[in-house]
Design a protein around this nucleic acid. Structure first.
Lengths: 244, 244
DNA sequence: ATCGAGCCATCACCTGTGTTAGCGTTCTTT
DNA sequence: AAAGAACGCTAACACAGGTGATGGCTCGAT
């Protein structure tokens, strides 16, 4: 398998062999593995290292006193849990897995040293954190401005682009470990209504969803339904990699 | 009036006279003024400088093709529009004013130079950008997990803390330039329902709102209604400034 | 002094989503 | 092989919030 962080950053800028090697060395620490549905960090704990997801799906989530849980971000392979967390004394949210996950923890000093010697990588990492922020904003728009059908359609469009960027889409399809309850916690809906909404998307031929496999037969159509605009992903070099 | 950025950063760490002077010099460029309801930057434009709000209220917003507008962040005096935007080639959202605004634009080189010579300020700026990210997450939770009453109550709690941090709360009250339509665009509601909800908050004695002035007579009560937890604002030094 | 534009308020009605409950299937565990 | 848990699906009903329309107030422009 290709290195997911390198694959991700190369969507933004071309990296030299030297850059790539630096990233490989940085992330070759011991691999930590987590079961599905386990917590990686909990709200209230002190942040320690920078974490890189190597495989599997994870999420940031926050819990309300009434028991409701809201997923506020999804982590896919190649995603970093914010570079500078260690400035903060306490986590304001938890990070948990949605499937079995493998990750490495990058020691902050190694991270900072790399920033001084590899400017192109540093710039690419700034890009990645700005894209994260933009994605958060898009989720706010999604929750505040779109109805259930548009909201789920938008989520699947985003996942399509993000998974393709790390080479996880094969012929319009991907593995989707999320349950309908997970989707509900992402979309701010109830599981029942997620089910209704998925039925509707399927009936319209916008989605196939069998077992743990998602297929998007007609991405442009889905994008139209979602009023999806990928500009917030800032995929500057995408033409170089995916055009015919 | 005190320097709003310095006031803000001192909620996180104590700054030296030297640090303060550096920040003052950095932000003493020409002041640009905008009328109320004007755009500062538009989606699609290339980002240029780092902007610091000196006075007035502004917002990031995104527009849906159906005309709906969603405010995804509020800027108060002392707030910076992300440090590193200039890495991106194109804005994915617009920034507009909600009241008359004065701001300075900090040239990126000056910014970067400061980062190399004033580590404590740099750290404080990291803190500020992490707090921004945390606030975005909290807004996602707000939209996804809370009903209209809780949502508006939460917003007013957040504004209380943020305004207090920059010295803009006087005896439990502040000026609130937002119209009910603005509140609707923040909270993902219709203006009509915002009106209903404000009535309800007023009837419960949680809020006074006359003219452009907001008073919160009983913050703890409002916090309870909102299930507000200020941990996401990471006000590490707050005890040093506001305790009796 | 008058006009018009915002803004706040209110009403009646409608609809998207939540709630509760139940059933069948598939996976896991033993 | 059996039992239980998790998950997907459905249905009937309830309600929070959206829609559209209207009136009154305030305030700046003419």
């Amino acid at each position: 398998m290709d290195h997911p962080l390198i694959a991700k950053l190369e969507q933004f800028s071309r990296l030299s062999d030297e850059d790539r090697r630096t990233l490989e060395i940085l992330t070759e620490g011991p691999v930590r593995r987590f079961a599905s549905r386990a917590d990686i960090v909990r709200e209230g704990e002190a942040p320690r290292a920078v974490r890189l997801i190597l495989s599997g799906w994870a999420c940031r989530y926050k819990q309300l006193p009434n028991g409701r849980r809201q997923i506020v971000a999804l982590f896919l392979p190649g995603d970093l849990c914010d570079h500078n967390v260690f400035v903060l004394s306490e986590m304001d949210h938890s990070i948990g897995t949605l499937s079995p996950v493998a990750l490495v923890e990058i020691p902050p000093p190694a991270f900072e040293e790399m920033m001084t010697v590899r400017p192109r990588v540093t710039r690419a990492l700034w890009w990645e954190s700005l894209v994260n922020a933009a994605t958060q904003r898009e989720w706010i728009l999604n929750l505040g401005g779109r109805d259930a059908v548009e909201r789920l359609a938008h989520l699947f469009c985003e996942l399509f682009y993000r998974l393709r960027g790390i080479g996880h889409m094969q012929d319009g399809g991907c593995d989707l470990p999320l349950t309908q309850t997970d989707l509900a916690e992402v979309a701010g809906l109830t599981p029942v209504h997620v089910n209704r909404t998925l039925q509707s998307l399927r009936r319209q031929g916008l989605l196939e969803l069998r077992g743990r496999r998602l297929t998007i037969p007609d991405l442009p159509a889905l994008e139209r339904v979602a009023s999806f605009n990928p500009n917030y992903l800032h995929l500057d070099r995408v033409g170089a990699r995916f055009d015919a």
